[in-house]
Design a protein around this nucleic acid. Structure first.
Length: 226
DNA sequence: AAACATGTCAACCGCTCCGAG
DNA sequence: CCTCGGAGCGGTTGACATGTT
């Protein structure tokens, strides 16, 4: 029967978002919260499809996003998580507050892959690229080791740190810091927006312990709205 | 300075997942 | 159960930026 497209594309705008569109979307979401994405463009007065709006919001406009390159720690965590989860970018992103799946995916493809290859590590398997006997070999990540099934497993991880380029230590379970997504108001429907104080640091810093000032400065126009 | 190559990343496409009926 | 439709995810594209010749 064929699925209907997420939206009828007739008359819908594509391509880069303008500042005006961003403003409309931010204003709408901050006023009404994230409801049915399909309805958002219409209600917000945007000639975009709902998917596009959701993507723009989650990947770029959300106030809690960090911008800029991933830190070494974040990169390390991405590698470890990738060795466990594979290309499950959204799962990986959920361990890195302020980072989006898209951002991590891009960073993986453009930076980390190269680094690992340079180090002779296959970014897909996290095993050495060549067959030379290597202390750093890691057991292949079983396909079924996806979320909920990765509780106990042996796993070796490769590190980008200079001292330990590749660790083959058997680990009972990779111990990652419990870093859940912050319980930001927007995740719960922005019902209480009036109470938000976007101009102060407390929201961002309290939630994540991460400094968001750079982002605020970079895109100050965005936050003038708040 | 111009032309070309390479890198980066925002955004799109199409698929799967999942909840409602 | 099954079907339908919306949301979300991952792969890919393409425009722009930056580096190299």
């Amino acid at each position: 029967m064929g699925r209907q497209p997420c939206c009828d594309k007739v008359g819908l705008k594509k391509g880069p978002w303008t500042a005006e569109e961003d403003k409309k979307l931010i204003t709408f979401i901050l006023t009404n919260g994230q409801c049915c994405w399909r309805a958002v463009p219409k209600l917000a007065g945007l000639l975009r499809c709902g998917k596009s709006c959701r993507l723009r919001w989650t990947n770029y406009l959300r106030p809690d996003l960090k911008r800029g390159l991933l830190s070494d720690d974040e990169e390390q965590m991405v590698i470890e998580l990738h060795s466990q989860l594979g290309n499950r970018w959204s799962k990986i992103a959920s361990h890195l507050p302020g980072r989006t799946d898209n951002e991590i995916k891009n960073h993986w493809n453009t930076h980390i892959k190269k680094k690992l290859r340079k180090m002779g590590i296959d970014p897909l398997t996290h095993k050495p690229l060549h067959e030379e006997p290597c202390l750093h070999s890691s057991p292949k990540v079983p396909a079924e080791r996806v979320e909920g099934k990765n509780t106990t497993s042996t796993s070796a991880t490769c590190s980008l740190s200079p001292s330990s380029s590749c660790s083959s230590e058997k680990t009972e379970e990779i111990q990652l810091p419990r870093m859940e997504w912050p319980e930001s108001a927007y995740l719960y429907g922005l019902d209480d927006l009036d109470g938000w104080d976007f101009t102060s640091d407390h929201l961002l810093l309290d939630s994540f312990g991460q400094c968001q000032r750079a982002a605020l400065d970079q895109e100050s126009w965005k936050f003038e709205l708040f």
